[in-house]
């Protein structure tokens, strides 16, 4: 008899059963997958930062490193040499009165002299010396504690000093950059430091991300353009009520939502069961029926009647009546 063979029959038939696949499935899957990570490895030519960004990031990293070194150097120096620093400053002021007209000149002149950065700071102080020597001394003292917030004039000086230092002290260590630099520098410098951090981070994690901002920025700029191209200007009022909905909580068609192409001014939806009892009423088009009775219980799977009265944007009245099937 066949009885014993049913399993065999089905198993034999289906163990290698194949079925045609709609070609669209693959494209759907492709969309569901994360973007192809083929370009991630650093060996890829695409990953090489393009000239401008590459230079910027390199330069800025060096810059931040130099800034931090300068700040540490100055604070260390002045904290260890409180009594003599004033004299040194005064000497330097006399020795180089015209240096600070151009920072780059200051650099080239100051650089050979100093290994630990007191001269550039002194040089930057020259700007401040246009005020008074006494004030300059005060500032020197104020700069001693690393965490003291500097005033406007002082921050300018410091930033000058920093930018001066940059090209001088390239090989200093980049470690303390993130901690020290933002506290001492003016806002523009902070921005640079932040940029640096980002670029450093991106450089260490994945090279192509330097380029990514460009790549992602381009499509996002294009998106609004496509949206602008849809100004529908038909004056006809359309209204649509689905004839089925499925309040089973799966997020799809859980509510009975009539759709209109224009806002309605007045709206009234009433739902009746097959015995003519009113089971739902709404005066807001956005307050749609969720398939529940007035007592909160779920309505059974059945066909219900709706009556909708509304006034459209042209003050025209419409009445709709129809049937809607509730499925779960």
């Amino acid at each position: 008899m066949r009885e014993q063979n049913i399993e065999k029959l089905f198993k034999d038939t289906f163990s290698n059963f194949e079925a045609d696949v709609n070609p669209s499935v693959w494209s759907n899957i492709e969309q569901g997958l994360p973007a192809s990570p083929q370009h991630i490895p650093g060996s890829s030519p695409v990953a090489k930062p393009s000239g401008f960004f590459g230079k910027i990031s390199l330069n800025t990293i060096v810059l931040v490193a130099a800034i931090s070194a300068t700040i540490i150097g100055t604070t260390l120096y002045f904290s260890s040499q409180k009594p003599t620093s004033q004299n040194i400053l005064a000497q330097q002021v006399q020795a180089q009165p015209q240096v600070m007209k151009d920072n780059s000149i200051a650099v080239s002149k100051a650089a050979p002299v100093t290994s630990l950065s007191n001269a550039p700071v002194g040089g930057s102080k020259n700007v401040a010396e246009k005020q008074t020597a006494a004030k300059a001394k005060e500032k020197v003292y104020l700069n001693q504690p690393p965490r003291q917030a500097p005033s406007e004039a002082k921050t300018e000086n410091v930033s000058n000093a920093n930018s001066v230092q940059v090209s001088v002290e390239k090989p200093s260590s980049p470690e303390p950059v993130n901690v020290v630099a933002p506290q001492h520098t003016s806002s523009s410098l902070q921005k640079m430091a932040i940029e640096n951090n980002q670029q450093q981070a991106s450089k260490t994690s994945a090279l192509p991300s330097v380029e990514n901002p460009v790549a992602t920025a381009a499509p996002s700029n294009k998106v609004p353009a496509t949206h602008e191209a849809t100004p529908g200007s038909e004056e006809q009022f359309h209204f649509f009520v689905p004839n089925v909905f499925t309040p089973n909580g799966d997020g799809l068609n859980d509510n009975l939502k009539p759709v209109s192409n224009y806002n309605v001014k007045e709206y009234e939806l009433t739902i009746f069961d097959r015995y003519g009892f009113e089971i739902f009423k709404s005066k807001d088009i956005d307050f749609s029926w969720d398939g529940k009775l007035k007592n909160g219980e779920e309505a059974t799977e059945a066909v219900y009647v709706y009556i909708i009265k509304l006034v459209d944007f042209n003050d025209e009245e419409h009445n709709y009546m129809g049937y809607v099937a509730l499925l779960k």
Binding site: F14, N16, F17, E18, A19, D20, V21, V25, W26, I29, E30, L33, S36, P37, Q38, I40
Partner: peptide, 22 residues
């Protein structure tokens, strides 16, 4: 390694059978 073509080959190789299961 993220090779889209390899993914497609794997897909093509087994998808008919998998469709049979589904």
């Amino acid at each position: 390694s993220g090779d889209r073509n390899a993914q497609k080959v794997l897909f093509d190789k087994y998808t008919r059978r998998m469709m049979g299961i589904c």
